[in-house]
Amino acid sequence: MGLIETGYLEYAELFSRQTLPTQERYAKGPVAIAECVQEIPCNPCESACACHAICVGEPITRLPRVCYDQCTGCGMCAAKCPGLAIFIVNKAYSAQTATVSFPYEYYPVPKVGDVVRGVNRKGAYQCEAKVVKVLSPASFDHTPLVTIEIPKHLADEVRSIERKCLA
């Protein structure tokens, strides 16, 4: 079963479609992971990146390729991607923990210090997580970028948090 049957990526399928950072690159700090594996006409990530680290090129249906050496993990692309398919992973956050940053367009927007429930790509609970950063400048156009701290071994799995239903 793959993405088009289930609706979500498994790590193995992502790995087979996108070149991912090496462990050496992960050791250097935050980096953008484009979980974009379908050829659709879309390229805002390319112009979002001030470091020119993302290339789509021509035709615009090509998959984005992130140059991991140029990427600083700033998160602009993650906030701009219309598919909400780019994540910032920092496996060098601390000895035991990593962080993952993801776009989160639901209310209530979590606050720094909140303890939340981390979920994987299919929405299944993985671990407790702490919100360490929430960015929502005007340039993100109402797409807050939330960063959570999680156990390091789950850095390739956790991609969002459980949504809280407003009463």
Binding site: L3, G7, G123, E162
Partner: peptide, 18 residues
């Protein structure tokens, strides 16, 4: 048997547990 639209849209709602 397959999702009809863009996979990134499907992935968003899967992450939300639909």
């Amino acid at each position: 048997p397959n999702i009809g639209g863009y996979a990134v849209h499907a992935a968003k709602i899967c992450r939300a547990g639909v």
